[in-house]
Amino acid sequence: MSEIDDISESKSVVFVTVGTTSFDALVRAVDSQEVREALFRKGYTDLVIQMGRGSYIPSKSNGEDGSLSVDYFTFSPSIAEYLKSASLVISHAGSGSIFETLRLRKPLIVVVNEDLMDNHQSELAEELAERNHLFCARPQTLYETISAMDPNSLVPYQPGDATPVAKFINRFLGFVDE
């Protein structure tokens, strides 16, 4: 095992993603001193924030003062590597981000953007939280959610088999089953 492997294994990374939108309330919440301290108390060492189109700029920190190391960026061609290396993901309520994180079996806190009109995303997040696949929060409740969460209490998400639905749609549209 190389020195780089030793370093990466000693890190416990929280990855925050807002997708392609602007969700300054989430970025502001994870940038708050109380949320940073709660994450650090839970054993996380690094916080990486994908801030999208937002205008709020979080504070960077190198973590040398015995606190969380914090970095941010706006966009990346792919967030797959960030998700894979994360110990915890804090995400907006976009279904793509939710299901990609659940597929990787990463602990997930979904933060609902209450500023969106007709927010069907909150229904998805709340349903999956009710089934114990993830934690659901609002920007103003993120600290409490982090403080109370037990990632070991989450139930792994098992994707369903879409074959019966696809066959039904094909029959309905007049296509012949193979």
Rank of each mutant, 00 (worst) to 15 (best):
S2M: 12
I4H: 12
D6K: 15
I7W: 01
I7Y: 15
S8V: 14
E9D: 14
S10C: 04
K11V: 01
S12W: 03
V13K: 07
F15R: 00
F15G: 00
V18F: 01
G19Q: 05
T21D: 10
D24F: 07
V27E: 02
V30R: 08
Q33Y: 05
R36A: 02
E37Q: 12
A38R: 03
K42M: 03
K42Q: 03
T45G: 14
I49S: 06
I49D: 03
G52Y: 02
Y56S: 03
K60L: 10
S61E: 06
N62W: 08
N62P: 12
D65T: 10
D65L: 06
G66S: 14
S67L: 04
S67K: 11
L68W: 01
S69Y: 14
S69H: 08
Y72V: 14
F73S: 11
T74A: 14
F75M: 13
S76C: 11
P77T: 01
A80K: 05
A80R: 13
Y82F: 15
L83M: 15
S87V: 08
S91N: 02
H92N: 12
S97T: 07
E100S: 15
L104T: 04
V110T: 09
V111L: 02
V112L: 02
M117Q: 05
D118H: 12
D118E: 06
N119A: 10
N119P: 11
H120M: 10
H120A: 04
Q121L: 10
Q121W: 06
S122E: 15
E123F: 11
L124T: 14
L128S: 05
H133I: 04
F135V: 07
F135A: 11
A137W: 02
R138K: 15
R138H: 08
P139A: 11
E144T: 09
T145A: 07
S147A: 02
L154F: 08
L154R: 04
P156A: 08
Q158H: 13
Q158C: 02
P159V: 09
P164T: 01
V165H: 08
A166Q: 11
K167Q: 15
I169S: 00
I169Q: 04
F172M: 12
G174I: 01
G174L: 03
